[in-house]
Design a protein around this nucleic acid. Sequence first.
DNA 1: TTCCGACAGTGGGGTCGCAAT
DNA 2: ATTGCGACCCCACTATCGGAA
Length: 519
Amino acid sequence: MLFDDVADASAQVAATRSRLAKRAVLVDVLRRAAADGPDVVAIVSRYLGGELRQRRTGLGWRSLSGMPDPADTPSLTVRDVDAAFAHVAGLSGPGSSTARLEAARTLFAAATEREQRLLGGLVSGELRQGALDALLLDAVGEAAGVPADSVRRAAMLAGETEAVAVAALGAASPDDARAALDQFTLTVGRPVRPMLAQSAPDVATAVAQLSAGTDNAPAAQVVVDTKLDGIRIQVHRDGDDVRVYTRSLDDVTARVPEIVAAVRALPARTLVLDGEALALDAEGRPRPFQETASRSATRDAELAATATLTPFFFDVLHADGRDLLDAPLRERLAVLDQVAAGHVVERVVTSDPAVAAEHFRSVVAAGQEGVVVKAVDAPYEAGRRGAAWVKVKPRHTLDLVVLAVERGSGRRSGLLSNIHLGARDPDGGFVMLGKTFKGMTDEMLAWQTQRFRELEVADDGWTVTVRPEQVVEIAFDGLQRSTRYPGGLALRFARVLRYRDDKPATEADTIDTVRALLG
DNA sequence: TTCCGACAGTGGGGTCGCAAT
DNA sequence: ATTGCGACCCCACTATCGGAA
């Protein structure tokens, strides 16, 4: 199969907004790939989902500038392209950056215009064709003649789509495809996609969301788990063999020997646990997220020894031969308390919203990030951001001043989008604390585009600097240390709540107010 | 007919390792 | 020694389609 066939399909997918039409295009190209063999299905399914098969190539967004002009006629096969990236991914050491770019130039020179668009999307990780993994899984189901749900479940348990697409599309009949998909079961040592949580502004809303999203009666019990501000871990144990995976299913076992040791000490032979790892101080209070991130990212053993990560678990998917994915949370927690005692997050189980709210206050006071409210009867829905888990975190707000605004891209092309935020300095001027593009409706985007053009004092082609007069109410999760911004502080997860036309910049919050929040 | 669940897109700050400068 | 890039950690929020109700 020619790479151009995939590029053509991607262009067709991008050209329509209808998901059904996108799916039809994907089904067609998947069927043609299947006729070329399983290796072609493997490559094509990855590319249609917007990914290369190589996890790290050393090429990125910046490498794409300076690529040669496109070829007039297609010549590359999908196997050619995969081989080229496999070569690039294998390069390392002095001279490898140059060799990578050279290989990329050769590849791009052989690619037509639409092939170059796809290559660029795959390299940058931003294909933007309006279809990624979820729609692709739907298409795989249709192409193989099996229900979408069975494909989705297989992919969630496999932790990947490629192998599932190969299995389903390699089958001779829909019945065979279904049988092939049934082979994807929870396996100790193979990570599954983690279950994710929706969010709510407060505990009462979270409980209400839970009742609406499930069959829970209004007065039903809920689990209120502590939400820790660390990194998500999924730990598999088979005897003495322990493996640790991140949320994106990256294997980080070698970097976290203390977690391996902790799980080896648990009273079970086989386990699949879901939890969070974080750095604690001497009193057991959580260190700032930045320290956990630093510790978990380093591969340097000496550096790693300067801080320890402590694992805490909130779910168990398998224990001693028993799969628990479909068991209700209540049952899973009973098992968890047995097999992971001492490494379980604090929780309360209650039907009283006041008790839930009190747990939230208490864990936040202890320095934790918040809570996750869960339906007691819900199964573990791998890979889903279902209604059964709802997270709640404290929210802070500030009235800040817009210092500049950047041009948007994609569906925000032609609009001024990403705003620079400053706190008032009582000694004069403003101290920038970060940027945000979140929370803006289309109406707000249109309004701010006009408003900031009126306040414009400079435009370098990307960023428009404005007179610091417009006040905006910003929500954020907390403050973090920053080397990027002059105040040494940056907002974490800043988003716009509303523009404040009732407040002049002279009444915006000051940098002193912000510092006081640090406590 | 209306409602709402799931998705994709639009980017944010910070950390590391690595190669180039 | 410093800088820039790539890869991942953490992530919030809105618009939209199409099936559910």
